[in-house]
Amino acid sequence: MNCSSPIDAAVLADYWLAALAESDEEAVEEHLLDCDPCSARLREIIALAEGLRHLAREGSLRMIVSDAFLRRAEEEGLRVREYAPPPGGSVQCTVTTEDDLLIGRLAADLIGASRVDLCICDERGVEQHRMPDIPVHLGANSVVFQESITYAKTLPDNRMIARLVTVDETGREGLLGEYTFNHTRSLPGPGTWQSA
């Protein structure tokens, strides 16, 4: 069966999220009840949505999250381990088998920042990874950073430095804050980096 007017996957995602206007939703439903290719595409969207929920619950993504997301995760029974080193300061941290999400709360004055990058640095302060133009609420006083807990659970003792920087239109950077995480491994396994 072919479809002469296929519904865009993004519209189907909106339909799944109940984000369409009522009249649009009715039109989509009429079409879906008469169209196998679009129904199949909707099934792909639902599977994708389920996959994303799985990854969110697994805590394996390195990303910026909101407090509402953390509240919802806790309501769902997920165990959130959170550290909040002050700007320029450090914190002793670890992760256990019972933890589901690993969060770093980075306090910073974000007023006036048009673009904020989060740089992940090694113990010498050398940048290893950059998250450019992270989503921030400019009135907020912190950035809530989720580290991949599956990655953190494999780590030996180490020190990680997170750096929040503003970047202006010319590419010039300004330091908003630097935060040191002194990780001690509390899970069984190697306590130091293993050479390959």
Binding site: L17, M63, F69
Partner: peptide, 20 residues
């Protein structure tokens, strides 16, 4: 993980909670 930061946050948080 290869999405842009905003895209990742939006798509994961939206589908996690199934809300827009």
């Amino acid at each position: 993980q290869n999405l842009k930061e905003r895209e990742r946050t939006v798509v994961v948080m939206t589908f996690y909670d199934e809300r827009t």
